[in-house]
């Protein structure tokens, strides 16, 4: 079985978010990046299939040079090989453009299963997985919390609201977009990191995939900005003792003490 896992490298969850000078995204120089949290769960889910039998895990990521670091991490965790699409045009694209690039790779690779995270921690679009499935012409499901591999396909549990779950079956080939918490993600071992250095990363451009000029964004970010402060909270300042005294008096006012 061949599994293609799509990874995005995103600003670290604790990275400082400053809006860049053109106002359309954050300033990405000199901040730390990491693999999108949702995607690490997707990768782990693929590696578990590999651990339990015969599977090749191919990781794919789109982005500038820094993305090779995320792919090395994925290879260190146990993925077999990596594809890196490094292209300025892709940088300015949108979810559909990204899905088109991934679809063209999927058509070359012909995987039995494609895994993505449910959404990215930066754009929060939750779009690429379902779009990719449509473009490849395979069924999909999102917010997957449990995967059971059957002879013909997958039996899945997807997350609904309030802790309810929906059980769905999909035939292979198919795509699943994984929810966080589906598994406990492994760390790359030292041995894995050493082995990853010998594993191949195939670098491509949109042109190599026949997509030059075809991934212009259909939705353009006009600007990003700090949400306007609404009424917001009354901020309590001072020493720990002063803060605690004020909190206690608030709780007393509520009649809870």
């Amino acid at each position: 079985m061949k599994i293609m896992v799509c990874l995005k490298q995103v600003p670290h969850q604790d990275a400082r978010l400053d809006v860049r000078s053109d106002g359309t995204w954050i300033q990405e120089d000199n901040i730390k990046f990491e693999i999108n949290s949702y995607d690490t769960y997707a990768l782990e889910e693929a590696l578990r299939v590999k651990d339990s039998g015969e599977a090749e895990v191919v990781v794919v990521s789109i982005g500038p040079d820094r993305v090779s670091q995320a792919l090395r991490t994925a290879l260190g965790m146990g993925a077999d090989r990596a594809i890196h699409v490094n292209d300025a045009e892709a940088e300015n694209s949108d979810a559909l453009g990204i899905a088109k690039i991934l679809a063209s790779i999927a058509k070359e690779e012909n995987p039995d299963l494609i895994m993505t995270g449910l959404m990215s921690d930066d754009g929060n679009f939750s779009a690429v997985g379902a779009m990719l499935a449509e473009l490849v012409g395979i069924p999909h499901t999102t917010a997957v919390m449990k995967v059971e591999h059957t002879d013909s396909g997958l039996k899945l549990e997807r997350e609904l609201e309030g802790g309810a779950l929906e059980v769905v079956e999909l035939p292979r080939p198919c795509l699943i977009a994984v929810q966080t918490g589906i598994n406990q993600v492994r760390y790359a071992s030292l041995k894995g990191i050493m082995a990853a250095k010998k594993k191949p990363i195939d670098v491509k451009t949109a042109g190599d995939l026949g997509l030059a000029g075809q991934i212009a964004p259909k939705m353009k970010i006009e600007k990003v900005y700090t949400p306007p402060k609404g009424d917001g909270a009354e901020m309590i300042e001072g020493s720990t003792d002063e803060v605690v005294a004020k909190l206690v008096s608030k709780i007393k006012e509520l009649g809870l003490l």
Binding site: L96, A99, F125, A130, M131, H140, K218
Partner: peptide
């Protein structure tokens, strides 16, 4: 943007080659 909506709306947009924006 509910569990059903977020599941099929992006797929619909890709099939239409349309713009998509979520949530």
């Amino acid at each position: 943007n509910t569990p059903s909506g977020w599941d099929f709306a992006p797929r619909l947009a890709a099939g239409l080659d349309a713009g998509f924006v979520s949530d």
